[in-house]
């Protein structure tokens, strides 16, 4: 859900390159993991393609809440596909989004780091809550809210570290402005938590095998 909605030119070229390099390293690790350690089958690839379509489709829609917000289902991607495939999915969604004019090309590296944080934290929290006696809806909801919270923190850190070109605003004021923005984002995160919670609960009921990686017990329950 968190996404740096700044135009190209807001970050200096060295920071654009820096975030891109870090993003490429993370993507490289994900690809290595998928190729050498965790072999992926056709079912996972189909799921990844479906999640890419869903995320891309919903991300371009401006939702008339809090003056206009976006969702991109990154926590849901994390819970269903895992962080490694999730990183590839958010890369594709960010590239396609930039291609239609939603977000700058230079921001893809930084946005990838924000989205990968959301995917990974949501996955980790959902998996960690697996052993606790909570219903699936709550686990997915908590995972979503925590994932988006960490995504917003990453977004703020990236902007503060990079700085904005041609702006004289001091760091405390920028931090204050971004904190307010993140607070608004967290309101939308609650709505996203309800959506993710409902979708994950439904999937667990009808296709528990799809959540096998995150909750191995679910796969045997069928």
């Amino acid at each position: 859900m968190a996404h740096i909605h700044l135009p190209d030119g807001a970050f200096s070229i060295q920071w654009i390159i820096t975030w891109w390099i870090i993003a490429i390293i993370i993507l490289g690790l994900c690809l290595y993991w998928l190729k050498k350690v965790k072999k992926i089958d056709n079912k996972k690839i189909t799921l990844a393609a479906m999640l890419t379509a869903a995320s891309f489709a919903i991300f371009q829609i401006n939702i008339p809440l809090f003056g206009g917000v976006h969702m991109n289902l990154t926590p849901l991607i994390g819970m269903l596909a895992g962080p490694a495939i999730g990183a590839i999915i958010v890369l594709i969604v960010n590239i396609f989004s930039a291609a239609i004019g939603h977000g700058g090309w230079g921001m893809i590296g930084a946005n990838l780091l924000v989205n990968v944080t959301e995917v990974t934290v949501a996955y980790g929290i959902y998996k960690a809550l697996g052993k606790i006696n909570l219903d699936t809806f709550s686990k997915a909801g908590i995972g979503t809210i925590t994932g988006v919270l960490f995504g917003n923190i990453t977004m703020i850190l990236i902007i503060l570290i990079s700085g904005i070109q041609g702006v004289n605003q001091d760091i405390p004021n920028t931090l204050y402005g971004l904190s307010l923005l993140a607070a608004v984002n967290m309101g939308v995160a609650i709505i996203e938590a309800f959506i993710t919670g409902y979708v994950v609960s439904y999937i667990k009921r009808v296709r528990p095998d799809m959540l096998a990686e995150v909750t191995p017990v679910a796969a045997t329950a069928k």
């Binding site: 740096i4 909605h5 700044l6 807001a10 401006n62 003056g67 206009g68 917000v69 976006h70 902007i159 904005i164 041609g166 702006v167 004289n168 605003q169 004021n173 920028t174 402005g177 971004l178 307010l180 923005l181 608004v184």
Partner: peptide, 11 residues
């Protein structure tokens, strides 16, 4: 969201 972002960073 874009306007909120620009205001937050001083653009």
């Amino acid at each position: 969201i874009e306007e909120r972002f620009s205001n937050a960073v001083g653009l």
